[in-house]
Design a protein around this nucleic acid. Structure first.
Lengths: 162, 162
DNA sequence: TTCCAACGTTGGTGTTGCCAATGGTATCGG
DNA sequence: CCGATACCATTGGCAACACCAACGTTGGAA
C-alpha cells in the first residue's frame, strides 16, 4: 500500500473508487495500528460498541448489526470472553441462542478503545478542518444510505404480524 | 459485506474509517462486477491506463506507479500479453528490464474498460450531484495527498546527475 | 407430528496486499 | 580490472479478510 500519489496516473488518481480504496486502506492501517497497540482488533470494537448501544443480544443479531459473519463472531467473542469483557450465557427462553452481555470491565475497556479510535480518525483526517470532516462524513453517509438494502423484508423477529 | 445500515450502531456509523471502509467495499464490488462482466480485473485496468499515460516502461516502474507489487505485476502482464494487449520486449539498454508496450488493441480495449468503469462510478455515486461528487473527490484527494510519502528520495533512475 | 427456519460452531475458500529468495544484470568504489 | 552493492523479473509463499457450507440442536408453523 506504499504508493506515491505523485507518480500515479491521473486516470487512476481521479477515479472515485480508486480514491476510496486508497483512503480506506489508509484508514484501515491507522485503525489497525491504533487498536493493535493496545491488543485489540476492529472486530472487538465493533462487537463491544454494538453491545453497549443495543444491550444484551444473541450472537446472530450481533453479527447482523455490526456486519460480521456469525462464524467470525464466535471467535471474536471467544477472545472477549476470555478477557472477561463479555459474558456468554445460554438464553433460557430460546435455547438455540446465547445472550451476550457486556461486563463493566468491557464498558471500561470500550472507553479506552474509543480514545484510541478517535486518535486514529484524527490522524487520518488531519488535513481537513472540522467542517470539512463533517462534510465528508455527510457525503459518505448519503452514498451508503443510497445503497442500503431494500426497506422491506426485515429479518428481525416481529412480536406480532398483521 | 451485506449489512443493513439501519441496524448498525451509531458508534460505528459515525466513524469516518468505518464509512470509508463500507463505501470502498461498495465501490470495490461495483468495479469488480463491471470489469468482470467483460473479463477483466482492476489490476488490468491499472496497468493499462498507467501504460497509456506514461508510455512504455519497465515492470518495476509500472508497479510503482500503479501501486501494485512487482510480483503481482508479472501475473497481470502475463494475462495481458496472452491477450495481445501489451508486449513484453527485453530492454536492450538494460538487460535486467522488460519494456512493456501497450498495443493498439490494448488501447482499444482500454476504451471499453473506461466506459465500464465510468458506469461503475456512476452507480456508486448515483445519490450525489455532480458538484457533490467533485467535492467528495477533492476531500479524498486532500486526505491522500496529506499522507503521501515524503517528496524527497526519488527512486527514478536519473539520466545524468549534476 | 412434520417440516422448515434459525441458532452456534467448525472448517473450510478465494481474494488481496505483501514479503523473501533467486539468478541475472548494472553500476560504482577502489 | 574487481568486488560490493543495488536493481531487475520471476517464483513461491503468507496472513488477513470477508464469506460460505455443513452440522447438530432447537423453535415455531403447517
Amino acid at each position: 500500500m506504499t504508493m506515491s500519489t505523485e507518480l500515479a496516473p491521473s486516470r487512476l488518481r481521479r477515479l472515485p473508487s480508486w480514491m476510496l480504496n486508497q483512503t480506506a486502506a489508509l484508514a484501515h492501517r491507522l485503525v489497525t495500528e491504533g487498536l493493535g497497540a493496545v491488543g485489540f482488533h476492529r472486530y472487538h470494537y465493533a462487537l463491544m460498541s454494538t453491545l453497549e448501544e443495543f444491550g444484551p443480544t444473541s450472537q446472530a443479531d450481533l453479527g447482523r448489526r455490526s456486519g460480521l459473519d456469525r462464524s467470525d463472531v464466535v471467535a471474536v467473542l471467544d477472545v472477549l470472553a476470555e478477557r472477561k469483557l463479555i459474558e456468554r450465557t445460554p438464553d433460557v427462553s430460546d435455547r438455540r441462542r446465547n445472550t451476550i452481555t457486556l461486563t463493566s470491565a468491557g464498558v471500561r475497556q470500550l472507553r479506552q478503545l474509543d480514545g484510541e479510535l478517535a486518535r486514529a480518525q484524527d490522524a487520518l483526517l488531519a488535513a481537513l478542518s472540522s467542517s470539512e470532516r463533517e462534510h465528508l462524513a455527510r457525503l459518505l453517509d448519503r452514498v451508503l444510505v443510497s445503497h442500503a438494502p431494500s426497506p422491506e423484508a426485515a429479518s428481525e423477529p416481529r412480536q406480532k404480524g398483521p
